[in-house]
Structures are given as C-alpha cells and as structure tokens.
Amino acid sequence: MIPTEATEISLSDGEAEIVFFGARPDPTTLIGRWEFFDLVDWRGQTGSKRRGESRPNAHGGFQADSVWRESRAVSFGARFIGVSLVQTRAAIDELSAIGAERPVTIKVTEPEGATTRLVTVESVKPLDRRARQFATVAVDLFAADSRRYAVADDVLWATTGAPSEGAGLVWPAVWPLVWPGGGSSGRVELVNSGLAPSAPVFRLLGGFSSALITCVETGGRIGFARPVPDGSIVEIDTAERRAIMDGQSDVSQWIRWREWDVVPGRQSRSFQFDPVDPIGEPKMQGRVLSAWW
C-alpha cells in the first residue's frame, strides 16, 4: 500500500454525491457526516498483463515491445456518527445506493490537488453487528482503467475554427510596415502534464457535411462522415471509441479511419480540424486530462 495524505474523498454518479472527510482528533466534529480511513491502492503501479513466452532454444524468454497494465482495486473504510439510529441507517442506505446500477467517479483530494478515477462499486459492507448510532463500513471499488486523472471541471477546452487565411499586405506599402493579422491554423494544442498517457476528447460544433481530425505529430486521423447541422455538437471520446450527438444519439458508426492517438505523459499533441462544406462557423474543441499511474 502506497501511503496517501488524502484529506477528502467523494463518490458521485452525476446526480448524487457523498463526501467523506479525513479523520479528526475530535470525532464529535463529524457528527452527521462520513469520515474515511485506510485508503488503499490509490497510488502506485498495478501488475503487468504480460504472460512470459519462453525461447525454445535459448535462455529466458521473448522481450515485449510494449507493456499493458492490469486494472486496479481501490478500497477504504468509513465511519458515520449519527444523532440517532434512524439517521445512521439512512446514511448507510444512501451509501449503498450510489453506484448500485452504474459506475461512479471517485475523487480524492490530497495536499497537491485532486485526482479522479471512474470505478464500479463492488460492495459496501457494514462491519457493525449491533444497531447503534455509530457505524463502520468497508467500501470496495474497481477501476477498469488503473490511471488517475485530473478533475474534468478543472480542465478547459481548447477551441479552433476552420483553417482560414489572414489578410494580405497591400502594395505599394509605406515603411515601417505593419503586417495585418487574422487567419486561423485550425489547430488546437493539448497538453498532458501528468506522467501517464491520456486519450483526448473532441467536440465538433456544426455545421458541416463531414469533418477530419488529424494529429499533426503522428498523422493519425479520425473522420466523421455524417452531416452535422449548425447548432448541433458531436462529442468523440477516443478512449471509449465512441461518438455522441447532442448528448443523446450514438453516432459511432459514422467514425472513419479510427487512427486513435493518445497524448503521452509530459508531452503535447496538436490536432488539425478540417470541416467539409462548412455552414456558419463550425468549430472543434479538444481536451485531454492529465493522467498519472
């Protein structure tokens, strides 16, 4: 177990949120609120998924070109001191309900900042056998992606319009020359300040008949081959390999090329936006969450 100095934990499913506060010397300050202890496996590295293949007529085995990491189990203990038995039981019921049917986001706040993971709640086990106002539970979570990420609400979207030319200089000109501005490269630069690779998310704001996203450094392409009317938004999640239009319709079948790129740790990537048959002022927004192991 890698030690952590977490000061707060929260579990959120997008509609409800439960906050667990760090241990206090005086437990009476936490009456009516959850307290956590023994956060396990939040930091550190998970095992490799590689299974060795021996060399038939030589020492050792074959060396892998890349390494893939296993998922992660996260757990912590929690206490609740209620003003009554009824309040304590209601708190346990609320904790048992969050994440019962869908994944939740766990956010852990430490002195250097907060990071998150998407997890499923494996179990919430009350450890007290007696009915009383003081309750202790064990919370077991499972993160399919072992990385932890920056808090999404803290990361801004980078925005660009379609590529456009700047204004030219009219000759003859009078010195000193003042070159006109304007124009757009049609690119966004996404920076991953963490130590683990992270997959970007893009938003395509209509209108256009189709669009192409190209990673400048690698040449990787993601195309969207369906008209998007002015005012509609298509969000492409490269980690999930999925596209959603206007927050409700799955339009992943219209993704073309699917040459998915990640932003390596401590690096940046630039992405070019090229809409076809633009209507109005189509734009592309991009964001990558810094990631750590």
Rank of each mutant, 00 (worst) to 15 (best):
F271E: 04
V83M: 13
P229W: 01
P197H: 09
V19N: 02
V40F: 12
V201R: 12
F76V: 07
G168M: 10
L169T: 14
V191Y: 13
P180L: 09
S96T: 09
K49M: 14
F37W: 10
T7I: 13
R51T: 15
D65G: 13
E235C: 02
G182D: 05
A97C: 00
R102G: 08
T214N: 03
R242P: 02
P180Y: 08
G61W: 07
T46H: 13
P282Y: 10
S209A: 13
R24N: 10
V178L: 14
R147H: 11
A239V: 10
R187A: 13
R102Y: 04
E122M: 11
S71L: 04
R187P: 06
S48T: 13
S249C: 02
Q87C: 04
P282V: 10
R221F: 02
V191G: 01
S10L: 00
D13T: 02
A225I: 03
S270L: 10
H59P: 01
F36A: 09
W175H: 14
F202D: 10
G99Y: 01
G206N: 05
G206W: 06
Q272P: 06
S84K: 00
Q87D: 13
V124N: 00
G82E: 08
R269E: 06
I2S: 15
L289F: 11
A58I: 04
D230G: 09
W42Y: 03
V178W: 12
